[in-house]
Design a protein around this nucleic acid. Structure first.
Lengths: 197, 197
DNA sequence: GCTAAATTGGACCGGCAAGTCCAGAAAGGT
DNA sequence: ACCTTTCTGGACTTGCCGGTCCAATTTAGC
């Protein structure tokens, strides 16, 4: 990447990425044009191509990375410290509240289903997101296991997979039906299952 | 819709829908053009607009309906008769095998994440798919409940929600990571949870 | 066969959006 | 101050893709 970036330049670049991300959340990747981004961020065509020489594809990649951070960030501080059942419950509540209130404007969906499948590079971003997410959840499960709260027969990474799958699917269903019931049911069932193990 | 449809005409229409569906599975909605469909199905532009006067949007809607049927159809005969644990296991195996082998070419993803969010009409299609699917799963759970195989405290529709969320999320993760482990973990955990209730 | 309706072919249009280009303004270093 | 590099503005080009149009051909019904 360009090593020479003025403070001003970096700010502009950041503004472009965030503006593009917002635009994409609202309208979807499909009908977000560079002109939309340009208008929203108050920039010119040449700036877009100055900071993203490879054009739209490169911008989308940057947006995917930005959104991936956002997805993990929105679950903090709970995701990083799933050491007690209370923490798990808080995490669960945070996730449900977060996805419920943001409605159709969903970073997770953007990175996993929209940009995430457009290019190999973007695909790698979503794969890394999944890996990091799984690692955090599995760490939490191992913590409970060490404390004797979860049965030793449970495979932490497998349980984390099931939990994350339920979460992702719950969000997909939230987006298409408008109801958060499925997301809640999936999370509750997964946690309940851990608890009874 | 056009009431007057010759056998030949109906066949052509069908060919267009199926060709479009294949094209979309392979390339995604985003970069499937009417010309691609035209080329694949050996038709002309005027035929496309003859059978789908409202253009691409209408064609996409037809594709969404087609794919929704396909999603449910691929789970038969098990989905319709989830009366025993063996049937549940067969269903689970069918689902895993089906999604594993079809790889990136995924009707479910097409209807839920791609076409399904483009227009209100298409959104209704995916909502209906979810409802029908949930109904089948809930019916299966109630059947086991009546037979005393599942605890009376289980809410069938809630359990079905959790199960379907796990499935959907598992598929999303399969598409982005290439591994079916998450899908399997989600299904196994959900069924296991029912079994122990 | 004859007519009307359905079906088909393909040239054409218009708009839109990605990407290019160059000139000019700011900023940074010495 | 001066020169170089970075940053910005916006007009312009290019190609693509959805959609239109009309003429030709086939099919169905009688």
């Amino acid at each position: 990447m360009t090593q020479t970036l003025t403070a001003k330049g970096a700010a502009t670049r950041q503004r472009i990425v965030e503006g593009a991300a917002e635009e994409i959340r609202e309208r979807g990747v499909f009908d977000t044009t560079l002109d939309d981004v340009r208008a929203r961020t108050g920039t010119s065509k040449s700036q877009l191509f100055h900071y993203f020489p490879d054009g739209k594809e490169q911008l989308l990649l940057a947006v995917a990375e930005f959104e991936a951070e956002c997805v993990l960030g929105s679950q903090q501080p709970y995701l990083g410290a799933l050491h007690t059942w209370e923490a798990w419950q808080s995490w669960r509540d945070t996730v449900v509240a977060h996805y419920t209130e943001q409605g159709q404007f969903c970073p997770l969906n953007v990175v996993m289903s929209q940009v995430g499948r457009s290019t190999p590079g973007a695909q790698a971003v979503s794969t890394r997101l999944v890996e990091r997410w799984l690692a955090e959840l599995a760490a939490g499960i191992r913590h409970l296991q060490a404390a004797g709260e979860v049965g030793a027969s449970v495979d932490p990474s497998r349980a984390a997979s099931a939990l994350l799958a339920g979460l992702q699917g719950g969000v997909v269903m939230l987006l298409s039906t408008g109801s958060s019931a499925h997301l809640e049911a999936a999370l509750d069932m997964a946690i309940e299952s851990l608890r009874r193990s």
